[in-house]
């Protein structure tokens, strides 16, 4: 009896997980869906075709978001990796770790609102460079904290071994540190990419509506009550993370095995 009950719960939970994905895709393919109809009057690719037109600018937003997230992920991962080494080998690493957490746990939108004056003064308000910089400021602490566990006695000993055997700085990085940290670098890249890709509040404050990333578009469609385009942009918002998650998860599986 108990086993039977469990056998029903699991497929139900799987359906529950898949439902939002299916529903959003279904909604993006729908049109003329008036209350109280349970099914839409139109079902087809009309909404998706508009992506290719300039009417909504969704494709541009998608490409712009991809560019911003790639830039943020690359810069945060690399700077986080190099700087975390100094921070987590420092005698006062506990204090430095606490300082790294402060911008990380503060709500990004509040952080951006308090920083907006400086962005305005630096000419970084309402442009892509400003949005990349602002998103970097929240993903950099994440990367820094992410690599904290990497820097330990074992790694230090490997580095000393390379130096003892006559290796230089490049040897230490390219023959020891990068190969050892390859997996972590990859996961950190994915995570910081997602932090940037999902970001709405901070982007809306620093971008002031001029930098229309995909999250800004989703919110715009929700406000306009244009639910079909809203669902379509949600699909575009979810698709890259699903792909990244698949790659990332596969890697995690390998690591555990």
């Amino acid at each position: 009896m108990y086993k039977n009950w469990r056998a029903y719960v699991l497929p139900f939970l799987v359906l529950l997980v898949l439902f939002p994905f299916t529903y959003l895709l279904f909604l993006s393919l729908s049109g003329a869906w008036y209350y109280p109809d349970v099914l839409p009057k139109y079902f087809g690719l009309r909404n998706w075709r508009t992506i290719l037109s300039s009417e909504t600018g969704l494709l541009q937003s998608f490409l712009m978001s991809t560019g911003i997230s790639l830039a943020v992920a690359i810069v945060s991962t690399l700077s986080g990796f190099f700087i975390s080494k100094t921070v987590y080998y420092h005698p006062h690493k506990r204090i430095l770790n606490l300082l790294a957490y402060l911008p990380y746990i503060l709500a990004p939108v509040v952080f951006a609102a308090c920083l907006s004056y400086f962005f305005l003064k630096l000419g970084l308000f309402g442009n892509v460079t400003g949005v990349i910089t602002a998103q970097f400021l929240i993903s950099f602490p994440y990367a820094l904290i992410f690599f904290s566990s990497f820097w330990n006695e074992r790694i230090k000993n490997y580095e000393n071994l390379v130096s003892t055997l006559g290796g230089n700085t490049l040897d230490r990085y390219f023959k020891v540190l990068f190969p050892l940290a390859k997996g972590l670098l990859l996961v950190c890249f994915f995570q910081t990419y997602l932090i940037s890709w999902f970001e709405y509040g901070l982007t809306s404050i620093i971008g002031v509506g001029k930098v229309q990333t995909i999250t800004i578009k989703v919110f715009m469609f929700i406000k306009e009550a244009n639910y079909f385009y809203g669902a379509l942009s949600c699909c575009l918002l979810i698709f890259p993370p699903v792909v990244l998650l698949y790659i990332n998860k596969k890697y995690v599986f390998k690591k555990i095995a």
């Binding site: 939002p20 959003l24 890709w197 999902f198 989703v218 919110f219 929700i222 949600c234 979810i238 993370p241």
Partner: peptide, 11 residues
């Protein structure tokens, strides 16, 4: 985990 807060709220 692939669904951001914005899309969850919309859904």
């Amino acid at each position: 985990l692939a669904i951001p807060g914005l899309a969850t709220a919309f859904f």
